[in-house]
């Protein structure tokens, strides 16, 4: 499948996403933020980075960029849209996903491996996994603390839209395993149609053994509509 990796001026994981997708046998093209078209056949990736410097609020300026109407249209058409890290922040700011990402509770930027519990296989992105499976996927963010109103959190839970939660190595979702203070240990959520994913951890950073693990492959392959090999 072909992916459009959106390149904001301050994106810095755009090339990494392209590389990871290629390693997984997928096609990827970079789409500059001032373009306005996304192919109806493409998947969309909003990569990590600091879209427009992100000094005001992460993703706040990016939501107004010329490419965003096309991203919204793609999401409405049912194309997969994956926002990773800064991409997640942008999706929230743009209203494609509910809630917001605020400063890490510990106030520091954190770059380390995180354990994620897969909450449901019911989405393209988690179709490779079973409920309760533990993945090791790196995080690298300063503002990844997921916040939403109690009503929204309830809705997310009721509709099983929390796809990943921070957990410990044993797969338990406990406060100590929460690297940024996110409500309900949320690491990744999807929209009601289940075609838009936002997650703080970086699956593109763990698709090769040499990079320290391959747990991210299933997420990207799932996004590409490729089923799990049995």
């Amino acid at each position: 499948m072909r992916f459009a990796v959106i390149q904001f001026p301050g994106s810095n994981c755009d090339q990494d996403c392209v590389h990871a997708l290629q390693v997984l046998g997928q096609e990827a093209r970079l789409v500059w933020h001032q373009e306005t078209k996304i192919d109806p056949e493409e998947g969309v990736i909003l990569p990590g980075g600091f879209s427009y410097g992100d000094y005001l609020r992460c993703g706040a300026i990016a939501r107004f960029s010329p490419i965003m109407p096309a991203v919204k249209a793609a999401a409405e058409r049912g194309q997969v849209v994956v926002g990773i890290c800064n991409g997640f922040q942008i999706l929230c700011e743009a209203g494609l996903l509910p809630g917001a990402l605020t400063r890490n509770e510990g106030l520091h930027f954190r770059c380390e491996k995180a354990y994620l519990r897969v909450e449901t296989p019911a989405s393209p992105f988690t179709s490779h996994y079973v409920t309760g499976e533990t993945l090791t996927i790196p995080i690298a963010h300063g503002e990844g603390c997921y916040r939403a109103s109690p009503e929204i959190l309830q809705e997310l839970e009721a509709q099983q839209r929390v796809l990943f939660r921070y957990c410990n190595a044993e797969g338990q979702v406990v406060p100590e395993a929460n690297p940024n203070g996110s409500s309900h240990n949320i690491a990744g959520i999807c929209n009601a149609q289940r075609n838009v994913l936002g997650m703080m951890p970086h699956p593109e950073r763990c698709c090769e053994v040499e990079m320290g693990g391959t747990d991210g492959r299933g997420i990207l392959l799932g996004a590409a509509g490729i089923g799990r090999k049995i």
């Binding site: 520091h108 930027f109 954190r110």
Partner: peptide, 16 residues
């Protein structure tokens, strides 16, 4: 210290 630095971006860092 190094947890506060993104040491992985670029997919070139082999080892921590």
């Amino acid at each position: 210290v190094w947890n506060q630095y993104d040491h992985m971006v670029g997919l070139r860092t082999v080892g921590k």
